[in-house]
Amino acid sequence: MWDVLTKSAARNIFYGGSLVFLLILVGLTAQSHNYVVNVSTDKAGLTDSVVRGKRLWEKHTCINCHTILGEGAYYAPELGNVWIRYGGKEDPQGAREALKAWMRSQPTGIAGRRQMPQFNLTDKELDDLINFLAWVSRIDTQGWPPNKAG
């Protein structure tokens, strides 16, 4: 079988097959893009404040300590469901205040404890960032994570 396969046949299989698989990937991506925008994420809730929150998340490269939907560094807790973990579903105002208080009190400076930097966010910025995290918690992630611990 290996001898029957010539070099030029192998080359043609490589180019032809790769093109086919690439086209399938592009097609499925287009379908998924549509699904994500219209079905699995909160289209109406994607406000300017949420987008500003995402930019703050990026500005301070939060992802290089935390994970979000399981992706990022593994040095600090998952934040895709932090809104739910803080009880944002039951008591949005309480969760918001608790998250703000947490971020304002960093770093703790406690010896032997992982430290989060102080980013000096304004109250409006904190609101934007929390709106972003709350929006993320509403994404239909096929049931992930398995529990509140993230």
């Binding site: 790769s18 698989f21 690439l22 399938i24 990937l25 499925l28 379908q31 998924s32 699904y35 994500v36 699995s40 994420t41 939907l69 399981g70 992706e71 994404i139 239909d140 992630t141 096929q142 992930w144 994570p145």
Partner: peptide, 15 residues
């Protein structure tokens, strides 16, 4: 190429 799918399990993409 289609193995990309193993990153599309839990990020809001279809089942």
């Amino acid at each position: 190429l289609l193995g990309t799918g193993h990153h599309y399990y839990w990020i809001g993409t279809p089942g």
